[in-house]
Amino acid sequence: MNTTTGAVGASRPRLEGQDKVTGRARYAADVPVPGLLFGAPVLSTVSHGRIPRSTRRRPGPCPA
């Protein structure tokens, strides 16, 4: 251990740990953003399949 600072090699308490394990911590994904658009990927059920045609239609309702 470093006698000057006393921090090298010593355990330090994690101040944010209690909030994380109890679910009280706020992350960037938890912050609501007004007007944010959502998207959902549509995956193929056939590998290397061909797309014979594509249609353009209005999107469905936005999930809240």
Rank of each mutant, 00 (worst) to 15 (best):
M1K: 07
M1Y: 08
M1C: 09
M1D: 07
N2Q: 10
N2A: 03
N2S: 07
N2R: 06
T3F: 14
T3D: 11
T3W: 11
T3A: 12
T4Y: 12
T4N: 10
T5S: 14
G6I: 03
G6W: 06
G6Y: 10
G6K: 13
A7Q: 15
A7T: 15
G9I: 08
G9F: 01
G9P: 00
A10V: 09
A10Q: 14
A10M: 11
A10C: 09
S11V: 00
S11M: 01
S11H: 00
R12P: 00
R12Y: 06
R12C: 04
R12D: 04
P13M: 06
P13Q: 13
P13C: 08
R14D: 15
R14H: 11
R14E: 13
R14N: 15
E16I: 06
G17Q: 02
Q18C: 13
K20F: 14
K20L: 15
V21Y: 13
V21L: 12
T22N: 14
T22L: 12
T22P: 00
T22Q: 04
T22S: 12
T22D: 08
G23S: 06
G23P: 08
R24M: 12
A25G: 00
R26P: 01
R26H: 15
R26N: 12
Y27E: 14
Y27D: 13
A28Q: 07
A28P: 04
A29W: 09
A29F: 09
A29M: 15
D30S: 10
D30R: 00
V31N: 08
V31R: 10
P32G: 00
P32L: 02
V33F: 11
P34W: 05
P34Q: 11
P34E: 15
P34S: 14
P34K: 13
G35Y: 05
G35K: 04
G35M: 08
G35R: 07
L36E: 12
L36W: 08
L37R: 14
L37D: 09
L37V: 10
L37A: 12
L37C: 07
F38M: 09
G39M: 10
G39L: 04
G39S: 10
P41Q: 09
P41S: 10
V42L: 06
V42P: 02
L43I: 03
L43R: 07
S44W: 02
S44E: 02
S44A: 11
S44T: 01
V46L: 07
V46K: 13
V46H: 07
S47E: 11
S47R: 15
S47N: 13
H48K: 08
H48S: 04
G49A: 10
G49D: 05
G49W: 05
G49N: 05
R50H: 01
R50K: 07
R50T: 04
I51H: 02
I51Q: 09
I51W: 11
I51T: 09
P52Y: 03
R53Y: 12
R53C: 05
R53T: 02
S54Q: 15
S54D: 02
S54I: 15
S54L: 15
T55E: 13
T55N: 01
T55S: 04
R56Y: 03
R56H: 04
R56A: 04
R56T: 13
R56D: 09
R57Y: 04
R57T: 14
R58F: 02
P59L: 00
P59C: 05
P59T: 01
G60F: 02
G60T: 05
G60H: 03
G60N: 14
G60V: 01
P61M: 01
P61C: 01
C62W: 13
C62N: 07
P63I: 00
A64L: 10
